[in-house]
Design a protein around this nucleic acid. Structure first.
Lengths: 327, 327
DNA sequence: ACTGGATATGGAACGGGTTCCACATCCGGC
DNA sequence: GCCGGATGTGGAACCCGTTCCATATCCAGT
């Protein structure tokens, strides 16, 4: 409860002197320092960050927007971003936009209301127009939000290529291919275009299913798997995001077909869940930690007012061979 | 950039009137309202939340501390807490204390520095003494932090009983039992005490392994599994937290033993990962969503200054039968 | 005509820091 | 002895809203 004025009075100095001492700025005589120190201790003084923030117009808080927290890709992203922000003295405000569709707007508005200093958004929902209005530090994860907002993503085209080539080398002829929703503009579509292109080139049949926008939960993936299996398609290869690939594999196993003998799987993302299933999944691995680091780095540059030439950062992907493919 | 003063000047009114209008408090004539509205629009005025916060001594931000974000139990907890806080108009600041051991202290200090209004802590590290000093809204998840801090937890004793009885009914005679670290005081130990008690009562041999404090990651679990398997113990039942149980099962399968025929598994927590492995795991399920809801409810009561009789909230657990046990 | 409550408004004080300017002192150099 | 830079200090102004008090008007009731 004690404020800087109380400290100043108790120590018989001016408020300016106390402030200078607290911030180690300007001159304060050693003797005065001690007097103030004693006064602070006696009054149990703790600076009120709110008042500081008001003056400096910054809070040291970054909002991170994700469509879903539970999806391991986003979980890991959040985890890494938090660590990276912490390193640079920032705190992370986390926002899950899945349930409340107006949450994204609300969190963006926080930029204007000076509650957060910047935003990292991995959300794939809002109209791009909303972002155009805002000229504050924003970085996008895997999403195009207009010219002025830098994007961090992986080389999805290469990811699509790796997946396609792997399934081809494994001799797959009839492939289930689950793509993201095309209602949002995002770099990730590249992997599906490239995948299809290569499959076409090689005259391999694919069965393409477009997933619904903004659903990343297990329940939905189960629905999709049930639906697809009901069609009794004869397939020998699957390309899908981690959790969906896994659900698909489990259903395959439950239908008494062997993996990888009868069906090969390549998962996209390569989060930890692809490593805890048996057989371990072959996966295209996104370097989530690097994505997080780059996102924070870019945002930090924006915050410091540095010029960023990096409007788009593209990181490499790798394939991690598991036992859902043979070669 | 425009402030309330600019608006007042432009609309030819006093700042008080503008403020009253913004907050819908006190009287403002309809005509004046319109004038102010126009001025606000022209100046593109957005209230500065920071100034508001300073006056009201609140930020609407709650810090949530967890030892690990990636562990699905905590992930789900965070997810639910965020949603619940959002409902009540609060934002969540997320802190992972795993990497930086002083992070916990720093985030607690935010309470004093008025950066956050309250704390929900699921962290199992800091000395309880640190918490005793703080008389601000704090709620603990599954951890005792002293008389004055309410705890939300599940009935671990019952969980231990359910696990024990299940393995016994399944005819297990030699059981691997992985317990949490006993260096922290937490309600969760109850499950291990009860489990051991029942096993002793029934003269069933257990092999007990105490896990290291504050490690919830896969890498560590793998190490533990490798270590235990190296001992070539002959076991027919396992009781462990989700991810560890899964790693254990996978290693079992890789050693060409059949699940559940040769070895039965009961996982503790029952997060989604126990549902995506084949065979699906039998698990003691913690009602994470309820834990989150109760945590937020208690914290909210503290924030409102309501008396809480609820110093300890105990929620029920359930067993979800999967295919890693037979009966 | 008088009174009192409802309606309406302006502006000073406040919340708790930071910064800057004015001013004072001390010391070394010429 | 004078000058100028380094050292040191107090306090007003500011950051941007909120609240409260003083003041004013209007209208209905008696």
């Amino acid at each position: 409860m004690a404020g800087i004025k109380d400290v100043a009075k108790k120590a018989n100095v001016g408020v300016g002197t106390v402030s200078r001492m607290l911030n180690n700025s300007g001159y304060v005589a050693e003797e005065t320092r001690k007097k103030i120190e004693i006064a602070m201790k006696e009054l149990n003084y703790i600076p009120n960050e709110l008042a500081r923030n008001l003056y400096h117009k910054r809070t040291g808080i970054i909002a991170v927007l994700v469509p879903n927290v539970v999806n391991p890709f986003f979980t890991k992203f959040i985890d890494c971003v938090e660590a990276e922000l912490y390193e640079r003295g920032f705190k992370m405000m986390l926002c899950n936009t899945e349930k409340e569709h107006n949450a994204e707007l609300e969190y963006l508005d926080m930029l204007n209301r000076h509650i957060v200093d910047g935003v990292i958004t991995g959300v794939h929902s809002l109209d791009v127009e909303e972002y155009k209005k805002i000229h504050k530090p924003i970085v996008a994860l895997d999403r195009y939000l207009g010219e002025h907002i830098p994007v961090v993503a992986v080389d999805h085209k290469d990811g699509g290529r790796l997946a396609a080539e792997t399934l081809i080398h494994n001799g797959c002829k009839r492939i289930l291919h689950f793509t993201g929703s095309t209602t949002v503009e995002s770099p990730y579509h590249e992997r599906h275009y490239e995948f299809e292109r290569i499959m076409n080139e090689n005259h391999i049949k694919t069965f393409k299913y477009e997933l619904r926008w903004n659903r990343f939960d297990l329940e939905y993936y189960r629905e999709v798997v049930k639906m697809v299996f009901a069609e009794k398609i004869n397939f020998d290869g699957v390309f899908a995001v981690d959790a969906l690939a896994i659900e698909c594999m489990n259903e395959t196993i439950r239908s008494h077909r062997k993996v990888p003998r009868d069906v090969k799987f390549v998962a996209y993302d390569g989060t930890f869940i692809t490593e805890i299933v048996e057989p371990k999944m072959t996966a295209i691995v996104q370097p989530v930690e690097k994505l997080a680091k780059e996102s924070v780095r870019l945002l930090y540059n924006l915050l410091c007012g540095k010029e960023y030439k990096d409007k788009k950062i593209l990181l490499g992907v790798e394939i991690r061979k598991g036992n859902t493919t043979i070669v």
